[in-house]
């Protein structure tokens, strides 16, 4: 089993998720199943094949350094759970 409970806890912490004991156990099993399935891919020989990081071919897709109008502040703040007139508001961060 490549994924143990400690790893699940660590991933949950990085994802800011709080899991119950039951969920930790459940996700450990499920993640292992997924990884075991993916393991099948390793049986394919890929020695002479370049790593593919992108779904499409190509390079150097640029924009010129020209200003495009931003959206207005009201639109930017509209979907925020908490806000002031000018800012997004979040729990105190140190």
């Amino acid at each position: 089993m490549p994924v143990n409970r400690e790893i699940v806890k660590h991933i949950a912490k990085l994802s800011k998720l709080s899991l119950t004991d039951f969920e930790e156990e459940k996700f450990t099993l499920e993640l292992n199943k997924i990884l075991e399935y993916m393991e099948k891919l390793n049986s394919i020989k890929t020695d002479n094949i370049e790593t593919m990081s992108y779904p499409v071919d190509g390079f150097n897709v640029f924009r010129e350094d020209e200003i495009v109008n931003s959206i207005d502040r009201e639109a930017a703040l509209k979907n925020a759970p908490q806000r002031t007139d000018e800012f997004f508001k979040v729990p105190k961060i140190l």
């Binding site: 350094d65 020209e66 200003i67 495009v68 109008n69 931003s70 502040r73």
Partner: peptide, 22 residues
């Protein structure tokens, strides 16, 4: 630069908060 790294918003320092966003 005039604009941000990955979008066309202005890169100016000191503008009103949350006005150079997209």
């Amino acid at each position: 630069t005039e604009t941000k790294a990955f979008c066309g918003c202005s890169n100016k320092f000191g503008d009103q908060p949350n006005t150079n966003v997209c």
